[in-house]
Design a protein around this nucleic acid. Structure first.
Ligand code: MN
Ligand code: MN
Ligand code: MN
Ligand code: MN
Lengths: 221, 221
DNA sequence: AAACTATTTTAGGCTAATCTAAATTATTTT
DNA sequence: AAAATAATTTAGATTAGCCTAAAATAGTTT
């Protein structure tokens, strides 16, 4: 029964550990939560006491099994609510995150089970991110950033690594939604931008800032 | 933008004013919120500063127009979520309240509008209580407690004034759900209990504690 | 009208979550 | 290896929301 605040710490630590698996620093966590490092240190002491994190003073923090399980529960709730908002209430994929940030803290296991069933047990959220099952098991995909594909390689847009409304709206406007096929026509060495063919039709030009944040499931893989 | 705590005060004051229209006392409010009177006095000062309530020291508190509007928004959210839980997630009417207590605090006007639409603009919640519209307009019914009906009078079960799971489960078990027809066969003077015919079939015996909490829409009214 | 009782408010304290400023520790540069 | 710099922790303070105990007020009884 962690507080809403503690839940947000655990979730954020979980996400940051995906980039820095052997420990998240106090500053990184503070920046991510938009609070001061001193506040983070305080909370890490409490989370340590509750055996949710392991904090090596002056080095960094990682999750315990208990902490990881809790984080995955929150992520499960967040992503199921996002599916609900997108599929049932017809919100666009750039609109669902902020509401899910609130809904994820509603405490009721039964509610989440029923919601899962109501949604038809979805495996991914509107951004292509996998939804952990009720036991905290999460499937890991081997999607690659579009920027690592080379000429002639093809695949399906299957996720994003950037969730800001402005980025998602940009993708939507250019027809780059989940499920669409792409083929890399040419990569320009000087700025890493790429020409990409969409659904075997239109060719569009994408900057590196865009291609690095689009995840591709490669064909025949 | 009242806090979650302030929202609960406003909602509770609104409900208590339905019984005591010219002012809710500090003790009543404290009991209703399960906190101490001293704490209530503190919060009432803050809500007064924010022009949400009018507090006459040592007498009682009422809502300002602004406070009433806010309370009705929260009640709207609560009841719409209850409809969602009952109709879409198949929860029983005695299970929805606690989850709605949490969901009602999720802040997003657009979410509530879409939810309302998704549910087909319901006019009442699973307990028969009216759902305020987005402008804070709430329809008032003229349902009467079953206990005031006399022999031979008939009507339809249309609401309850007691929401505890044990009471609601009792009603459910005895077929006393919303929409069912009743006819008063006999009222026993010594304990105010009543024999009531359900859907022109079975006659059941109900104590006063039960009949006073069932609201009836009388036929031809 | 005075005294008593019940209710309400005030005074002073506590905890969770935040902050700023100062002290400490680790890392990098010279 | 010392000094400088950067990151982190500690110390002390603040605010919201709660508490208990004491003081003040209102309502009731004699
Ligand atoms: Mn999200
Ligand atoms: Mn998502
Ligand atoms: Mn309710
Ligand atoms: Mn209800």
């Amino acid at each position: 029964m962690p507080s809403l605040t503690a839940e947000n710490y655990l979730k954020t630590i979980y996400h940051l550990l995906e980039q820095e698996p052997d420990g998240v620093t106090t500053n990184t966590l503070a920046a991510s939560l938009s609070i001061k490092p001193a506040t983070v240190t305080d909370m890490l002491r409490k989370l340590s006491t509750d055996k949710l994190v392991k904090h090596e003073k002056y080095y960094g923090v990682t999750l315990t099994d208990k902490g990881r399980k809790t984080a995955l529960e929150i992520i499960r709730r967040h992503r199921l609510w996002e599916v609900f908002l997108a599929q049932k209430l017809q919100f666009a994929w750039d609109e669902v995150h902020d509401m899910a940030e609130q809904l994820e803290h509603v405490q009721s296991d039964e509610l989440i089970e029923r919601l899962d069933k109501f949604l038809g047990y979805p495996k991914t959220d509107p951004h292509g991110d996998p939804i952990p099952d009720k036991r905290g098991k999460i499937s890991i995909h081997d999607f690659k950033p579009l920027c690592v594909l080379t000429q002639k390689q093809t695949g399906v847009i299957s996720g994003v690594t950037e969730h800001s409304p402005s980025f998602l709206q940009y993708l939507e406007k250019n027809g780059l939604s989940l499920g669409n096929e792409i083929e890399v026509m040419e990569v320009h060495a000087f700025d890493m931008s790429a020409d990409v063919k969409l659904n075997q039709k239109k060719v569009i030009h994408l900057s590196y800032d865009v291609t690095k944040n689009i995840l591709i499931k490669q064909h025949g893989k």
